[in-house]
């Protein structure tokens, strides 16, 4: 499997897209830290960037990469290799490359300007989101053979998690305005890895005081060691479930 990972990594780096991604992240985060004037503003800017750009890039890049290496995957499948090894190798290669780009592109500026708990939480959330959305991209790509449909699906997934989910939450909240909504809201937040990551980071920042009673509840849930591990657990599920589903489909698939 390590061989596959290495091969995928080499292939990705040769394509130079990942280098462009790294450079863009670097430029954006240095820009945010220098323009905003103070560190917390820079971090908030970075948070928005990570919440929008990282999922999009992971989904599109993961999907396209999967389709482009279809022939290579077919070749591997003809060898005495388990399907699981092939897909996990591909996944680790892609996710590893994207995580590396993120750690360089955002980790370096964070280390220089905001080396604190908030900065590192932000980075960790970025890495986890990368894993989640590469897994989702693979799920989409495995499910359909047609590249156009696959990319469309990736876009839809991004659109749902980045925008629609929040809109739906607002709709539901308006519909059930008269009921206590703290716990349902938190459950709905857990249904979206982007929102969950955002709240975890915001709770580290002092804006958490604005969140009033709900924020206090959330902080009770997530601020403690057990809370952080439960959030990490939920995010881990967000990696494992799509990846497991993708494996399940890939194993039964007629390539």
């Amino acid at each position: 499997m390590l061989k596959i990972v290495r091969y995928v990594l080499q292939d990705i780096i040769r394509s130079r897209i990942i280098i462009a991604y790294t450079l863009i992240l670097l430029a954006a985060s240095f820009g945010l830290f220098n323009l905003g004037g103070d560190v917390s503003k820079g971090l908030i800017g970075l948070l928005s960037l990570i919440m929008l750009v990282v999922p999009l890039v992971c989904l599109i890049f993961g999907t396209i990469h999967f389709y482009n290496s279809y022939e290579f995957i077919e070749l591997l499948a003809s060898q005495p290799l388990k399907r699981r090894t092939i897909l996990l190798g591909e996944f680790l290669g892609v996710a590893g490359a994207l995580c590396g780009a993120l750690l360089l592109g955002i980790g370096l500026p964070v280390l220089l300007y905001a080396a604190g708990a908030t900065g590192f939480t932000l980075l960790a959330v970025g890495v986890v989101l990368t894993l989640v959305f590469v897994a989702l991209a693979f799920l989409g790509a495995v499910a359909t053979r047609d590249k156009a449909r696959g990319v469309g699906m990736a876009m839809l997934i991004w659109f749902y998690f980045a925008l629609l989910h929040g809109g739906l939450m607002l709709l539901i909240m308006f519909a059930f305005e008269d009921y206590p909504l703290e716990k349902p809201t938190m459950a709905m937040i857990a249904l979206n890895p982007i929102d969950l990551g955002r709240v975890v980071v915001l709770l580290q920042m002092d804006v958490s005081a604005l969140m009033g009673y709900t924020g206090a509840l959330m902080k009770d849930l997530l601020g403690t060691a057990s809370g952080i591990s439960s959030a990490a657990g939920i995010l881990l599920l967000w990696i494992l479930i799509p990846l497991g589903l993708a494996l399940w489909i890939f194993r039964r698939k007629d390539l």
């Binding site: 919440m51 629609l164 989910h165 939450m169 607002l170 909240m173 305005e177 909504l181 009673y213 709900t214």
Partner: peptide, 15 residues
């Protein structure tokens, strides 16, 4: 103001 729990969407793109 109307629905305090919606503050969890603070700084989300939809908002």
């Amino acid at each position: 103001g109307r629905i305090p729990p919606s503050v969890l969407l603070l700084r989300s793109p939809i908002v």
